[in-house]
Every structure is written in C-alpha cells, then in structure tokens.
C-alpha cells in the first residue's frame, strides 16, 4: 500500500460545496441561505401553489380581513393578498437575477483591465466613475427609464449598467493588490500578453472579491427595483410585485393593514436573507467586507 503524495486540487464543484457548507455552518449564514433558497423555490413553483389567480377580482369582497378562503385578506380590487404576495417576488428576482451577473461581469472586466494597464486611461476613467457615483442612483435610473420606457427589457440593462460602475472600483482595487505580487511579475517575465495575464493570473485572484461584491449588488439592486416599482417607474400593473403592492395598498392601510404588511415581509425577508448570506460568504472566502455606502 502506498500513500499518494500528489495534492489533488479541489475542482470547482467541490470548492462550491465547501463554501456552501462553510456558509451553512454559521447561524446567520444558515438563516440567510435558507431565506434565499425559500424565495428562489417560491419564485419557481409559485404559480402552481397559489390558491387564486393574481388577476381574479372579487367585487363583493374588497379590502377584507383574513377569511377562510383569503388567509391574508383581499386588496382594493378584491384580489387575494396571499396569492399576490407569493408571486410578488418573481419579477424582481428575474430582473435582478439577470442584471447582477451582467453588472459584475462588465464592471469586473473593466476594473481588472484598468487596474492592470493603469496610467492615463485609468485616471480618466476613474474621474468619470466618480462623476457617475456623485449622482443619486434614482436620478440616473429615472432618466434612462423615462427615455426608453419601463419594462423588463429596459430595466435589466439599466440596472446592469449603473450597478456595474461601482464594481469597476472594487475590481480595480482588488487588481492593484494582486498586480504587485511575484507570480504576476513572473508571468510578465515569461512574456505573457495582457489578456493571458488577466485571464490566468488576475481573474482567478479577484474572483472571490467580485463574488462577494455581486451578492451585495444583488441586494442593492433589489432595493432599487422595488423602489422604482413603488414610485410607479418599475413593473406595470397587474403584474404582482411587492413594491407596487405596497404603493397600491398604502392608501387603505387603516382598513386592511395586511395588504402592506404581507408584501413588506416578503421583500424584507429576501433582502435580509441575501445580506446575511453575503456576510457569511465574505467570511467563508476570507474577505474583509469593508463598509460600503449604497451607490
């Protein structure tokens, strides 16, 4: 019997499992992960488990309290609140779920590139980034949405564009930490080109930072998406959406408080779940999650 001395590098799937186990081993991480998974499952199977159709109106039963048929009561058009709350996250999860990877991808690539080449290009680009970041997010989003109209096909690129800009900074800073290391110098000395450097040396080393950043961006994006819906610039009725439901039910709060409370719980539990998971992910990957302001 011989002892193998070769070190088996864990594959990506094993690594993924290891990180997931690490997250689940922390109480707050387990809770966050549980909430996120619950919401993802609900978004997937929602349409098959809801008791009513989200458009079905019951004119005889408007703004009712909880009844045996309508567990959470009905809204101002007599639609079932439970149904609409269960379905209310689908659009938000779909839009932000596509926009987040896009934002991290483009922001990350640009950030790593300017972090590597530095110089004049870097200076100019960072000034432009600063200029963008000094405008309130809502103004930037609204200008684009008013120009191109609302709807998923506008919201996804808009969110991906604006939320990629702060990622540039993170990726650039992470690249600066890596570029000075010996293995990058060695790769340069071996004569690797810029893109080989980015692909083989830099990206694997900034990946963890970008993952954590992506998780955070997802939560900010959900916040932006639901705020836009709330203000009337997001999804259009009758699509069930938490932000829109809260805006609609707000006027009837004194008669049917469940109409606002139910979507609030839905939205808050998802966002808190993402944040707890992101925190645990940062700890699992050994990244010191610095304090960041929402941009």
């Amino acid at each position: 019997m011989s002892i193998s001395t070769t070190y088996q590098r864990p594959g990506p799937i094993q690594r993924f499992w290891a990180v997931l186990q690490d997250i689940a081993a922390r109480p707050s991480g387990a809770m966050g992960l549980g909430l996120v998974i619950l919401h993802l499952v609900l978004a997937l199977i929602g349409p098959w488990i809801v008791p009513f159709s989200y458009t079905e109106m019951n004119a005889a039963l408007m703004l009712s309290g909880p009844t045996p048929q309508h567990w959470l009561g009905t809204d101002h058009l007599g639609r079932d609140t439970l149904t609409r709350t269960l379905l209310g996250g689908r659009e938000a999860i779909l839009v932000t779920g596509i926009a987040t990877p896009l934002a991290v991808l483009w922001g990350g690539l640009v950030g790593v590139f300017v972090g590597l080449v530095a110089g004049r290009l870097d200076e100019v680009l960072m000034r432009i980034v600063d200029a963008f970041l000094s405008l309130p997010w809502i103004l930037k989003m609204l200008v684009l949405i008013v120009t191109f109209g609302t709807g998923t096909q506008v919201l996804i690129p808009t969110l991906a564009f604006f939320y990629g800009i702060p990622v540039i900074r993170i990726a650039r800073a992470a690249t600066h930490d890596v570029v000075a290391r010996d293995f990058v110098q060695a790769a340069r000395a071996r004569g690797h080109g810029r893109f080989a450097l980015i692909w083989r040396e830099l990206l694997p080393n900034v990946r963890d930072a970008l993952l954590v950043e992506g998780a955070m961006r997802w939560s900010w994006m959900l916040l932006a998406f639901s705020s836009l819906s709330f203000l009337g610039f997001g999804v259009s009725p009758p699509t069930p959406d938490w932000g829109l439901m809260i805006a609609d039910a707000r006027g009837f709060m004194s008669f049917a408080p469940l109409g606002v409370l139910a979507p609030m719980i839905g939205l808050s539990s998802l966002i808190i779940g993402i944040n707890l998971t992101a925190d645990a992910l940062a700890k699992a990957l050994g990244i010191d999650r610095a304090q960041k302001a929402p941009v």
């Binding site: 939560s219 916040l223 639901s226 705020s227 709330f230 932000g243 809260i246 805006a247 707000r250 709060m253 004194s254 408080p257 606002v260 409370l261 609030m264 939205l267 808050s268 966002i271 808190i272 993402i274 944040n275 707890l276 925190d279 929402p294």
Partner: peptide, 22 residues
C-alpha cells in the same frame, strides 16, 4: 443595523406610518 440599512426606505417609512400614525 443590518435590517435598517438593507430594507428599502419606502418599506420602513410605510411601516412607521402604519405603527405611529395609523
């Protein structure tokens, strides 16, 4: 603190109206 900073402002605002005003 985590809850307060991640929950959208319109949610906390509406909740406060519901509790303290309504």
């Amino acid at each position: 603190a985590i809850a307060a900073m991640t929950i959208p402002e319109f949610v906390s605002a509406t909740l406060m109206i519901l509790v303290f005003s309504v």
